[in-house]
Each structure stands twice: as C-alpha cells, then as structure tokens.
Nucleic acid binder design. Sequence first.
DNA 1: CGCAGATTTGAATGCAATCAACACTGGTGG
DNA 2: CCACCAGTGTTGATTGCATTCAAATCTGCG
Lengths: 249, 249
Amino acid sequence: VLLKADHVLIAKLKTIGQLAAEEIRALLAIIGKTRQVSRHQDIVKDGSSPDSVTLIVSGFACRYKLLPDGGRQIHSFHIPGDLPDLPSFATGFTDHAIGALTPCEVAVIAHDELRKLTEAFPNLALVLWRDTLIDSAITREWLTGVGRRDARARTAHLLCEQYYRMRAIGMADDNVLPFPVTQVEIADALGLSTVHVNRTMKTLAREKLINYHNHSITMLQWEKLQTAGQFDPCYLLRSDGNLRRADRK
Amino acid sequence: VLLKADHVLIAKLKTIGQLAAEEIRALLAIIGKTRQVSRHQDIVKDGSSPDSVTLIVSGFACRYKLLPDGGRQIHSFHIPGDLPDLPSFATGFTDHAIGALTPCEVAVIAHDELRKLTEAFPNLALVLWRDTLIDSAITREWLTGVGRRDARARTAHLLCEQYYRMRAIGMADDNVLPFPVTQVEIADALGLSTVHVNRTMKTLAREKLINYHNHSITMLQWEKLQTAGQFDPCYLLRSDGNLRRADRK
DNA sequence: CGCAGATTTGAATGCAATCAACACTGGTGG
DNA sequence: CCACCAGTGTTGATTGCATTCAAATCTGCG
C-alpha cells in the first residue's frame, strides 16, 4: 500500500528528475515512521549532527537561523515532499534549524540506509543532489531579492515562487495559494519588518494583484504579479541534465 | 607531473573531505586544457547548458545575476580551486552567470568524464556534492547578512569569510588578505551602494579593525572583526560525515 | 597628456524601521 | 459565560540608515 509519505515524496521527486521504478521502490522502502511536530517546534536543531533525513509529509516548515541579537532570518519555506535537511546527509551536520510553521507530520529516512541506496543507484544520488541544488537556487534567488529588490517586488516574488512550488505538488489550484504563514514569518523571510510586510501586502491587494484572506492568497492578476516580482520560474524548473541534451540530438 | 590546476584542485578538495589516492588520480586525469579569461568577461553565461565544469586555476571570479532594472547581485566570490559551476553538472543548466573579477586561468572538466567517475566512485560524488552544499551554506550566510545584519556587520562578515577561505587554500597569511575586488563589486555582493561600502570600509579602518590599501586587507584585530561580523566559521568547516560519526565510536 | 575607472566626501532624499496604539482572533481559566 | 491574555493584523507618526545625486580626487594606462 502507498502511504501518505510515499505519495508526497513521489510527487516531489517527479518534479526533480526521472527515477526508475526500482529506484522509487527502494527509496520508499526505507522511509521510517512518521511523527507529529507541533507548531513552532524545531524539527531539526541548529548545529546538530543528525543520523537521518527528514521528509515533510504534511504541514509547512522553514529553515532558519537565529542571530546573536535576537533577529531571525528564514532561508526557505518547506512544503510536503521536501527533504529540508537532505544536506546533512552529505555533510554530516547542520548549520541552521528547521522549524514547523504549522503542525507537521514528518518521516525519517536513516542516513545509513540512504547511503546504501545512493551507492547502489548513482542516478538516485544524482536526483537527490539535484534536489539540494534547486534548493540552493531558491536561496540565491532570495538573496537577489533581499539584496536588490524593493519590498513590493520581494513580496510579489515570494508569492509567485510559493504558488509555483505548491502547484507543482498539486497543493495549489485555480490561482489560490494556501499560505499558512504569519506576517512575522514572512518578514523574517524577506528581511523586512512585520509592519512593512503588512503595508506591502495591503498595497498588492489594493492594486488588485492579489486577494489575501485567512492565510489564503488568490492570484487576481498572475501576469502582473510575476512582472512586479521579476519572477522567472526557470530556476525551479525540472531539468533532466544529460537526458535533455540527449533529446536535442 | 603536477600542473598548477592539479595543485589548486587538490588543495581545495582537501578542505572538503577525504579522497582515496585512486580517486584523486582519476579526477586529475580528466582535467582539460586551461584557458585565459580576461577581466570582466563571463566564464559561464547565464542560462546556458554547459557540457563541462569549470575549475578556477588562478584569479578571482564571482557568480552573479543581472536584474531587469540593471541591478546586479553577486552570489559568491570564487577563488582558485573552486568549481563555481559544478551545480550545472547535476542540473544540466545554469540560472546565473560566472564572471571574472580579475584575469583568470580556468580549466574545464567534461561532464561526461566526470559522470563516469562519480558512477565508479560514489565517495567522489559525495565529496563533490558536499562542495556544492558548502557553497549553498555560504549563500545562506550571505542571505542572513543581507536580510538581518547592518552594513558594518555585513562587511566585516564578508572579510572574515574571505580571509578564512583564502587561508584554507594557502593564499592568505599573517593576517593579510589579498582582495582584488572593487568597491562596486563588494557593493553588489553585500546589497549596498558603492558609496556606503566606501564609508563602511573607512569606518572599519578608522576603528583599527582592518587596514585597507591596494586591494589588500590586513586584519588588525581579528577577534574584534569576527565579533563585529557575527562570524562563526562552522558553516565553512570540513566535515567527514560518516567518518566523523565513526570516529566517535 | 588625457581619459576611464575607482575611490572619496558632502548634501539631500527616501525607503523601511521603529515606536506606539488599537482592533481582532482564538484559547484559557476563573 | 465572560474576562483575560497572547498572538496576530492594522494604521499613524517619527526616526534613521542607506541611497541617490553631485563633484572632487586619485590611479593606472594607452
């Protein structure tokens, strides 16, 4: 039988690259038990050396870092199917925390088991590697925004990206994006103050680019929102590497 | 004979993880010809689908992205031994450009050859994967800075990081950091204006934390500079993953 | 020498932070 | 049941860090 954890992981991996049926089967086989994490609890602690990788089965999480002065920077939002601490598999440690923004179900995958698989299936290793690379492409895009885009563009960009990713795993439709994240958290992601996030979201709503109620965002003018956010989804796109080049021949 | 390209690559890989002599030999064997790139030229173009990976043999480079409005965000600086477009090996495309900040010597490593090696040596694949992960840890750290640190801390942090990385490959010593990068480029890296970078560097010099002449920076008070930049090098540290865990037993 | 790029400094402007207050919500306990 | 409270969202007023504009050196180089 296919569990919920299996479903979300398959949905996610499909957006990254092609896996053989055998590879998928082997990967699903090593998914461990799921556990519940309540809101605002850490799924992974900063500075730890985990011996397993976490799969978000349901709920919203984020990767973040706390500063000595009490500030917080959120580096990414994580949605079902994500493996937010996959990097720890290759590096052995984490330099950041993963926190639950909503109640989450998470499953663990032991490093040991995963290592056997990556050694047996180089292609699986490549797809996982690619996952971490898309992840860092997202981080770079955020860096670009925080460094060189104003509050409005930054906010619009985040909404576009989030909608795009949610749609890819079948969790957003009809221009409606479920976004169960407080303005405090959006502020820590965008490098803004909560007050300014509030004003900026209001501006986007006043401009009729979005509708924002009950942590659900409706894209009223998707094209205009993308323009406002200078959003170009190419960095999120699935690419099959060699496969793609082979196709061209 | 060991070429310059071999030397810098070995020096770099040593900072990332352990490789067997056999693995190193195989890797060095597939390093292609070196070519010269003059200052301000692109080593890799944005949006391209390269079929080889670039090794910086000498010189300074950066990864960057241009915005529609003419702005630029630099995502990372790259020094000899770096493989700035290694991500393209796993994803097949680039969503950013790599530019030469000084005249550079670069060598190419064909994707095809590299793929054979990673399939033959899973450990080599793991080390390369880890390299891209350290790279993204750096990007996250920059994101934290641009999002939540003021100009002084951001600048100090960059100098600490750069000194740390240069020292690791033997290109900085005695508290002297060669930093052949203009203030325009520092500004595009830190998300500041050039004017403000200038003032901030002057401030750090006035405070006697650094000395800054001829694109060479002397760390006058290394401890204080780290404090000012909230710099904690753990995200740059070499970690041997399983090895480390095994050691503990 | 002349010129382009880089650095430096001053003055004015502006975007976003901070401070402050209030409304609204859901949950808790008296 | 209602009072209370913490967390969240909203709005106005003020402040400040960093930008922009402007102009003056300084440097290397053809």
